[in-house]
Design a protein around this nucleic acid. Structure first.
Lengths: 244, 244
DNA sequence: CGTTTGGTTGAAATGTGTCAAACTTTGTGG
DNA sequence: CCACAAAGTTTGACACATTTCAACCAAACG
């Protein structure tokens, strides 16, 4: 486990070192904690929320539904992420966020966040920065979906998830929890479940990973990066990552 | 033509009404204006810029190159946009921006922008907001590329471009300049030039648009929206659009 | 006015989707 | 803690949207 019990602090500390006052200000924020079951909506497209939420435990994803009922997943979130931070400046949500696993989330009033940002500009900048990194990740996903074949697409996503998990201390021995179903991978990458299944088998056969029972183990990190054309620059991790 | 000769002011005015001081502060910003020919890079992936730029005239696009030399365009920009505003908070650029047509752009030092934001928080919020809208557009493009077929994809993009142009006063009589080649459409939508060509013909045959000599005319706006599953919510235009 | 850039066409190749069925794991209530 | 239901995974055969390749044509430009 990393520095703090508050995943938001752990996340910010992975960018720069907080002063004791900043730390305390975050801990002092009133936060309404809520436990949620798997496969539940947290916020829905069209909502006009007056608060945002931090993921404290579990995995969530951001998605939209097409008229035909297909789902496009646009992001996966892990503890420390604030999936709907955008609603701080955009009145109506243009996407839904739902849980993948059982989750614990903490709601924070927009007023509270705005106050925090103006009182501690470094935190304000860090949050703006976070939304910019989200955008950077969207761009990278566009390349994946638009230009890479299934093998590269899946490899790239696995690289990304591993690196993000490592940044918040959730990877050990090239292994981490990854409770994402093949259907969900498909909805994220614009591929059918069937094709995800076949592609996963290929990636396994190539000796790059092991993935069973919600546990991902990377056997050949270099190979996986190469297969996915993965270059972590777009994640804008400031502190160098310990090669776990 | 709209309110101002400064496209950035026109853009901000399309969201909220600037006070005279805010207006003046923007006009007073030192800005290094530069004219560029078509098909030129303005900034490149990997750069660590100390300034951002506003598009004053012409069209630009944001893109990345894959190892195989394919290009994925991730955004088109029109006058008033600040394509690399993200570099204000992210040190190294993770994408390139180039001109599509001849362009006039204005470079503004990050220092100047930061100063503007802290002195006029409403402008600061508006700029953060702009980056959030960019992210929202990326998400919508992910749906297009991931889930919509060629006909819907192209229709959707045409709708988006028209609405964005209308917001800054560049549409008249459902008609606007659109100097984007079929190759560029393909690079943006993850389709081959050949397929763009065939799809454009279908869209024309369906009586939805006319597109010749860099001029787009929408003949059936409702039909085009329906074909592209286009719902402008994601563009977060605050002021209602005059149906031009 | 020739040269470059962008647009159009046809035929064949291919990656991925769809459908339908069987199998396996996970979670849960009795 | 078992047994069963639900959820997720795997497999095969076939369909199809889009790509690729290779020409040729039209428009823009210096």
């Amino acid at each position: 486990m990393t520095a703090s019990h508050h995943p938001l602090i752990a996340k910010l500390e992975s960018i720069f070192t907080l002063t004791p006052e900043e730390r305390q200000a975050i801990l002092d924020m009133p936060m309404q904690v809520q436990e949620l079951r798997a496969k539940q909506d947290i916020v829905r497209e069209g909502d006009r929320p007056s608060r945002s939420f931090v993921v404290l435990e579990g995995f969530t994803c951001m998605f939209k539904l097409t008229p035909k009922g297909e789902r496009q997943i646009m992001a996966f979130h892990i503890p420390g992420d604030i999936p709907d931070l955008q609603s701080l400046h955009l009145k109506t949500l243009d996407n839904s966020v739902g849980t993948i696993t059982r989750c614990k989330v903490g709601f924070i009033q927009h007023e509270t966040l705005r106050d925090l940002c103006s009182r501690y500009p470094r935190i304000g900048s860090a949050l703006w920065r976070e939304t910019l990194i989200d955008a950077s990740i969207f761009r990278e996903w566009m390349i994946s979906i638009g230009r890479r074949d299934a093998f590269a697409r899946l490899s790239h996503l696995l690289c990304e998830l591993l690196v993000k998990m490592r940044a918040v201390g959730l990877v050990e021995d090239h292994t981490c929890k990854l409770p994402i179903t093949q259907g969900e991978f498909g909805d994220a990458l614009g591929l059918s479940t069937v094709h995800i299944n076949r592609t996963l088998q290929e990636i396994r056969k190539a000796g790059l990973i092991t993935l069973r029972g919600a546990t991902l183990k990377v056997l050949d990190w270099d190979g996986l990066q190469k297969a996915g054309e993965f270059d972590p620059t777009y994640l804008h991790l400031e502190k160098p990552q310990a090669a776990a």
